[in-house]
């Protein structure tokens, strides 16, 4: 299993502690209604983690702000997605 953390370690962030800009609207929907849980495959920062009990856990600290999770969740629309507050989040050195 490849670790995306090693890649993200090279990136610069200003984390808005305690104020995640993306939230799962209803955890039950992920657990019971979403079979594929593709956010856990498609997120390029590995922010969505599949837990053994069928739950999906979201930790936004490594978010690259691409928008993938919001767009692929088109059947359940279960992602509450906003930009981080001004100045917070990923800060690309090169882009």
């Amino acid at each position: 299993m490849l670790k995306v953390e090693e890649k993200l370690f090279q990136d610069r962030y200003r984390v808005d502690a305690g104020r995640p800009h993306i939230k799962i609207k209803d955890a039950e929907t992920c657990t019971h209604q979403c079979k594929s849980q593709q956010c856990t495959v498609c997120c390029p920062a590995g922010c969505y983690i599949q837990e053994g009990n069928g739950k999906v856990v979201l930790i936004t600290d490594g978010c690259l702000e691409c928008g993938t999770c919001r767009i692929i969740c088109d059947e359940h629309r279960n992602v509450d997605w906003e930009w981080p507050r001004g100045g917070f989040g990923i800060l690309f050195k090169f882009g």
């Binding site: 890649k7 090279q10 990136d11 690259l64 691409c66 993938t68 690309f92 050195k93 090169f94």
Partner: peptide, 8 residues
């Protein structure tokens, strides 16, 4: 490698 990025 000095930066990893993702974009739509």
């Amino acid at each position: 490698m000095k930066e990893y990025a993702a974009h739509l």
